[in-house]
Amino acid sequence: MTDRLPISEIWVYLSGDPLFALVLTLATYQIGYTLYVKSNRNPILNPAAISIVLIAVIISQFGFGDTNRDAYQKYFEGAKFVHFLLGTATVALAVPIYRGFAQMKGKIFPIFVALIAGSIASIASAVLIAKYMNAGDSIVGSMYTKSVTAPIAMGIAERIQVSPTLTAVFTVITGILGAILAPYILDIFKIRPWWIRGTAIGVGAHGLGITRAFSVNEQAGIFASMAMGLNGVLSAIVLPYVYVLLNG
């Protein structure tokens, strides 16, 4: 063993391979998920948020590229295989929507009205506050799409040409906030029926809220998944027109 590879060269070789980005993504998510489960599903320890922070620190600090842009491009080159599955996951949301429909008898009309009212309130407040506080075009633009579950939101973001990245980040934060705040908000308004609690969580807290809802009550979980998917579909159909109308 005369020509032993110096450790730095091994690192260069590994960091150029798509496998490294994939392992990094899955391993950090696994760490986040383990912490989340160990902490009795505390929403602050969101697996996705932990994974994002760890990856961001690793690729920006450990010679992935000269600038953050280089580093991110290199990382995404490998991680795009995970990213690709977003579309597939969106289609898979059809199953919870269908299961929810089966339980919705006689509630379809109020659920549609509530979903529309809820997402208008959510989008309008986010966009208006961001605009009023001069948050800059790319941030305000992503406030339009962040109220929808991430896979659909990013599809819409690409269509209306706002940043899918900021959309995804805002969606993750929304999910964390929603999962933390939802029980308190719903208790303040004395809302007892599980299906109402579930639907509201699905609109406000996305995927993370749904996992929590399922762990409390099966019916709440089904309605939450249904509400999240349906909200996404309605937004995907309506949002592009609203955005063009308001932004010319």
């Binding site: 993504t25 998510y29 996705a48 991430a150 896979p151 995804a168 980040v169 993750v172 999910g175």
Partner: peptide, 15 residues
């Protein structure tokens, strides 16, 4: 679901 939007969200380092 959350795992799948990690790659896109890491782009936050650009913002």
């Amino acid at each position: 679901l959350a795992l799948l939007f990690v790659p896109a969200s890491v782009g936050v380092i650009l913002f």
